[in-house]
């Protein structure tokens, strides 16, 4: 039995993930382990405490951001 896959947009690029993935699972797949990232799901910030509960759906648009040097 093959697991169901779905497509989401992460930082502007299309990506396939397992259906029913959470934000936390996606971050794990991306190898993002640092604490200093923020996640936006369909234009709304997902607070860190909700990463394990936030379930992704087909076509979701995510931004995973961090801090960089700036003025």
């Amino acid at each position: 039995m093959t697991s169901l896959r779905m497509r989401v947009q992460v930082n502007g690029e299309s990506r396939e993930v397992a259906a029913g993935s959470t934000v936390a699972a996606l971050l794990g797949e991306l190898g993002v382990t640092q604490p200093h990232v923020a996640v936006e799901l369909n234009l709304e910030v997902v607070p860190r405490a909700q990463h394990r509960d936030a379930i992704l759906r087909e076509g979701d648009r995510l931004e995973v951001v961090t801090l960089v040097g700036g003025g």
């Binding site: 993002v32 200093h36 951001v65 801090l67």
Partner: peptide, 28 residues
């Protein structure tokens, strides 16, 4: 001041700004 950018698209060496800033010393 700091800027907000997409993760992993800035520094290919994997360095993060925050590795070089004492965040207990500075208000960001």
């Amino acid at each position: 001041t700091v800027a907000v950018r997409r993760e992993r698209l800035i520094d290919s060496a994997g360095n993060n700004l925050l590795d070089f800033i004492d965040t207990s010393r500075y208000t960001l």
